[in-house]
Design a protein around this nucleic acid. Structure first.
Lengths: 230, 230
DNA sequence: TTTAATATTATGTGCAGACATAATGTCAAT
DNA sequence: ATTGACATTATGTCTGCACATAATATTAAA
């Protein structure tokens, strides 16, 4: 007597058929009921398998129309955005950070625009240099809306990094991220590189509901590579 | 008589409680059976809701131990990697591409190393400039293992871009992606920018099983930003 | 021919129950 | 105290069924 067919089994077999082009891109694959009969399992088992494959973008499913192999499998890469300290410690290095600046100031227009703040609300600005084994790793430039994060003005930001403090203390939020490349400019000084060095930049803006919380700009030291797998 | 509770309802309510810190980070939340009673639905409904939240990294689940709110919610950002033509056309611009170079040659060591090729197998090298509204958008430098992709030597790569051809004709594969920033260097000529301009670079290596297929390096024109949402 | 009403169909989701599985906890024997 | 056997428990997943929903196909009416 054989084991029951699991949704993983179904998923693996369907994936195999797609890879082997038994079902080429664009093809309509058999319906759930039919596959359930073929694999001798319940329709809900097939459903879960196909649903998960559709989530990764490999299948297109539509009611009544059926399930097709994606013509243009939009490849999705999932990046994990860890807390900076963890990122550094994961590579085996020791993390240390220096608070270069911490003041309440009026934000420049570019920052206000990103946060969607019309009036010139004073924000908390912090500049932190993160070091891995005492070598500059990244420069963090952060603007925080103190209205949105009560308590941050009293937080011991010289000991805990703002990055970490916010993860622990601010409610979970949504936000957007942008990745780009820029010349180091004046930041080259803190990062110990030339002003025209090409730096990898991450900009993140987060909101809690409609209330903007923070805008962060991360400038990584030259040579940084962000890696992921498809 | 009210509608039945959906897994989306449960998901939303659990999310609300996490956001509102009713269940703070690290807290053990009630078991599925208990929640099913509270929400007056089946355990499988709660299961699906919690499973999906765990997939996004918001919950940690372990058999027997129960479900906890993640202490360090590893934020995952999902990047969509579209075909270049689609990426350009999605922004409303017209896509055009120029095949700058196309030859069979021995790959430099750096490329061979990435592909895991020990012997000096000749590879197909292509350099393509992609234009958006006739302005340089990105320079694509690609090395393809012709053994892995039969037919590519006869493909009309001057008309269809290699990018697109491979998506349509090569079996689906796995690969890794790296993002970084580099100075333009000699590529500045094709991209119409200074040699010391900071460029956003994407490098992708793909395999089919253990067989290496292609290594691509994408150099985006200055100002490019890759965006995503958490 | 076009449009509107209706039937059909594949996927989407809920339910109750059952058993599997992986941890954890308990307790006895050493 | 340590080890090992065993019970316990929360999640993991399968089943079979029902009904919901969205999209398509068909048919009838204008």
């Amino acid at each position: 007597m054989s084991q029951p067919t699991t949704y993983r089994d179904v998923k693996a077999e369907v994936l195999r058929r797609i890879r082997a082009r038994v079902w080429p891109p664009g093809a309509l694959i058999p319906g759930e009921e039919s596959l359930a009969r073929e694999f001798d399992c319940a329709r809900s088992t097939v459903n879960r398998a196909l649903r998960e494959l559709a989530e990764t973008g490999l299948l297109d499913r539509r009611r009544k129309a059926g399930t097709r192999v994606s013509l243009n499998p939009v490849r999705r890469a999932t990046l994990e955005i860890p807390v900076i300290r963890q990122e550094i410690e994961a590579s085996g290095a020791t993390h240390r950070h220096m608070l270069l600046e911490c003041r309440v100031a009026e934000a420049p227009l570019a920052v206000r625009a990103r946060l969607g703040l019309e009036d010139s609300l004073p924000l908390l600005q912090m500049q932190t240099l993160h070091l891995a084994d005492d070598r500059p790793y990244l420069l963090e430039d952060r603007w925080v809306n103190p209205d949105a994060v009560p308590g941050i003005l009293d937080a011991p930001l010289d000991r805990i990094s703002a990055n970490e403090w916010l993860v622990q203390n601010a409610a979970l939020t949504y936000g957007d991220i942008e990745f780009s490349a820029v010349a180091a400019g004046p930041a080259g000084e803190a990062l110990a590189c030339a002003a025209d060095a090409a730096l990898f930049m991450v900009e993140r803006t987060t909101w809690q509901g409609v209330q903007p919380i923070t805008y962060v700009r991360l400038l990584y030291a030259p040579g940084y590579r962000m890696k992921t797998v498809i």
